[in-house]
């Protein structure tokens, strides 16, 4: 992905693939020689979280900060994240926000700090194949609800349309017009078209080849 800012906030509908996109972005940012901090701000989802990749991040020198929640003895998340000082450290920071407007509430707490920070992207991840965002209008409505909930405005769209393991280049190709429409309706630029290797259509704008890190145990064999 081009033009990565110091702070990248990733939002989206439940299951749009925010976490997988965030993990890819963190690994690529670190591989490009940047010190990188990834913040798992998901207070909604108990499973398939950024924090599941703690060991991998450790190996790549990526700092992971997550709420005290899943995999601990807490059933209610507690956020203890010093965002101001992390931003001042000069690291590239990626924030993986929980799904929909509910998930974005946790982000709202940091809105005053984020508004003061000049080098920020807030990217909205979309997936045409998710049940409640199949129409561009629905996707844009959820985007606006997220903005209303956290008090921050998006700066770009990430087309992460996929059918999980059944994704082919046709799957991604069929989503390009949808992504264009979301971009047009929202007035925001399309910043990336994501696809796994071999599934990227030739004519995809802003192609970003990703890996599937979020997967089930029986796929890992």
């Amino acid at each position: 992905m081009r033009d990565i800012r110091k702070l990248t906030i990733i939002t989206g509908h439940y299951g749009s693939g925010k976490t997988n996109f965030s993990v890819n972005l963190a690994l690529d940012t670190a591989a490009a020689g940047n010190r990188c901090t990834i913040i798992d701000l998901d207070i909604v989802n108990p499973y398939f979280r950024t924090a599941d990749f703690r060991d991998m991040f450790g190996e790549k020198n990526i700092e992971l900060l997550s709420p005290v929640y899943a995999n601990t003895n807490l059933d209610i998340p507690s956020l203890n994240i010093p965002l101001q000082s992390i931003l001042e450290s000069g690291n590239n920071v990626i924030i993986d926000v929980g799904g929909d407007d509910e998930g974005a509430k946790a982000l709202g707490r940091f809105a005053p700090t984020i508004r003061e920070f000049p080098d920020t992207d807030m990217l909205y991840v979309i997936n045409k194949y998710r049940y409640l965002t199949k129409e561009a209008e629905e996707a844009v409505q959820i985007m606006r609800e997220i903005e209303y909930s956290c008090g921050l405005m998006h700066t770009g769209i990430v087309n992460n349309s996929s059918l999980g393991t059944e994704t082919t280049s046709q799957t991604v190709k069929d989503s390009l017009a949808y992504a264009d429409k979301v971009s047009e309706l929202s007035g925001l630029p399309l910043r990336a078209t994501c696809a796994v290797e071999g599934a990227m259509p030739d004519n995809a704008p802003e192609p970003y080849v990703i890996k599937r890190y979020v997967r089930t145990l029986w796929e890992n064999q």
Partner: peptide, 9 residues
Amino acid sequence: EKSLMKGNE
């Protein structure tokens, strides 16, 4: 047409 859904959904 296929959708991507969580089991619960």
